[in-house]
């Protein structure tokens, strides 16, 4: 850890206003990503992982707002900026890759125009420079015969190629942070692996920080250097990837890992988690996982769990599993 990390989020809080009251949707989310780091943000649908990303991207939907905490990009707290300043800066600092590569591209524009759209806006490129930049970006993300494909439209690309184009688009302004919100969910397994390898290469070669959002832990096991698990708007466990995969300490993380089929060890029963996550408008007091937790004890239902563990692995739990050597 040297100096200020590239991305530092502290106590981020996103609230919704409904019938005159504010409800916290995401609370106390803190994390850091170094240049070249890859943080995997994992959780069920509706646990707040996409909203955390939306807050970073300035894309919170109407009615939701960041209500506290800090988002520091290269030391600067962007929440202190005016909306216009932040808007101007955003394209240069943060890039986004979305889930569905079909919807992420405008069907009625040739791809080269889309890839450099943000760069054109930000750096006022002329047409020739923009085309050159588009070619450079498409080659960077490994689109074969990029020069011949500049004028093609999105429907002329396969799903994996479209996602590569979408990644090129996100990189057009040389952002320092790439937020990838389930970028491989819509793709087949082999393409998933290719896209992951591409993201991994980009972060290692270019020092890009990556926030990788997924509900599939197995996907990131190989590449992530940190894992953060969210449940019902709160972080439940945060750890170095090696430690985490050696033995998660929070019962929820365990349950997530237990739900992954393994090829190497047959005859192990997959576990599931009973029930559904609570709605943000009726979070239980105490630990939010308590109603579904197999290890629940009395304090869980009353008090927010304190962090257990050290910097390298921290679980927010009253009764965490023991730390594994790792």
């Amino acid at each position: 850890m040297s100096g200020a990390p590239l991305v530092a989020v502290e106590d981020l809080r996103v609230t919704a206003r409904r019938a005159g009251r504010t409800y916290p949707i995401v609370e106390d989310v803190s994390f850091k990503i170094e240049a070249g780091g890859l943080l995997a943000l994992v959780g069920e649908s509706g646990c707040g992982k996409s909203l955390t990303a939306a807050a970073l991207l300035g894309l919170l939907p109407w009615g939701l707002a960041v209500d506290g905490g800090q988002i520091r990009l290269e030391g600067q707290n962007v929440l202190e900026l005016t909306p216009t300043q932040w808007r101007r800066l955003r394209g240069r600092k943060v890039g986004a890759v979305f889930q569905n590569p079909l919807a992420a591209l405008n069907p009625s524009l040739p791809i080269w125009k889309q890839v450099v759209e943000s760069a054109e806006l930000t750096f006022r490129l002329d047409r020739a420079a923009a085309r050159a930049r588009a070619l450079e970006l498409l080659e960077l993300v490994g689109v074969p015969q990029a020069a011949q494909r500049l004028d093609d439209y999105p429907h002329q690309f396969s799903g994996g190629m479209r996602q590569r184009v979408a990644i090129a688009l996100a990189l057009a302004c040389d952002p320092r942070l790439l937020v990838a919100d389930e970028p491989t969910t819509a793709l087949d397994l082999i393409t998933q692996a290719e896209i992951l390898r591409l993201l991994n290469r980009l972060r290692l070669e270019r020092g890009l920080a990556v926030l990788f959002i997924t509900h599939d832990l197995s996907l990131v096991a190989e590449y992530a250097d940190q894992v953060m698990v969210m449940y019902a708007g709160r972080v439940v466990e945060q750890a170095e990837a090696r430690r985490f995969f050696a033995g998660p300490r929070h019962p929820y993380s365990r349950a997530l890992l237990g739900a992954i089929p393994r090829l190497a060890t047959p005859e192990v029963r997959l576990t599931d988690i009973e029930g559904l996550p609570p709605s943000p408008f009726e979070y239980p007091p105490g630990c939010r996982f308590a109603p579904r937790c197999p290890r629940v004890i009395e304090p869980c239902r009353r008090e927010l769990p304190p962090p257990a563990g050290d910097q390298r692995q921290r679980a927010f739990c009253h009764r965490p599993f023991a730390q594994e050597p790792g």
Binding site: L57, G58, L59, R87, R88, L89, R90, G91, V94, G95, A96, F98, Q99, N100, A103, A104, L105, N106, S108, L109, Q114, E117, S118, L121, T122, A166, L169, A170, A172, C173
Partner: peptide, 27 residues
């Protein structure tokens, strides 16, 4: 649509989105 969100993410304003992305979708 994601492509409109993507444009907003990198800082495109409402007028730009309307001209560049939405107008042609209305055609």
């Amino acid at each position: 649509r994601d492509y409109v969100l993507a444009a907003r993410q990198y800082g495109a304003g409402t007028g730009y989105l309307a001209r560049r992305h939405l107008l042609r979708a209305m055609f």
